[in-house]
Amino acid sequence: MSSFEYTLVTIIGCGLITWLSRVLPFILLKKFTLSDRVLEFLSFVPIVIMSALWFSNLFTQDLGHLPRLNLENFLASVPTLISAIISKNLLVIVAVGIVSLAVIRVILA
């Protein structure tokens, strides 16, 4: 197999895996209903996943050691959070976030 074909097979295989991971649960729920226990568990998924995706970006991993603080992202999170509280508008929040990080990089550089 050429390197192109090998990469292509990898891409298609991984594509199928990620696609089935989203589609199968979605359509299976049209046939089955989940128990109340499971639904209760799933009701925590949004807040837990959203905050996990935020916090995992505040640190740099150093396996076996305490994570290091990503100072730039940490500092930029402050004005971004304030803009969230004031504006409640995602577009504004994203813009404030980008500008905050750029300004912080200039100051820290």
Binding site: M50, A102, R105
Partner: peptide, 27 residues
């Protein structure tokens, strides 16, 4: 990475966490 654009997704999750906290009434 120097452009600061990589922070856009993090910023969005900050906003989504806050909006989730202020709007979700199921929990």
């Amino acid at each position: 990475e120097q452009l600061g654009l990589d922070f856009a997704i993090v910023a969005m999750f900050i906003g989504l966490v806050y909006l989730q906290l202020s709007a979700d009434r199921t929990l």
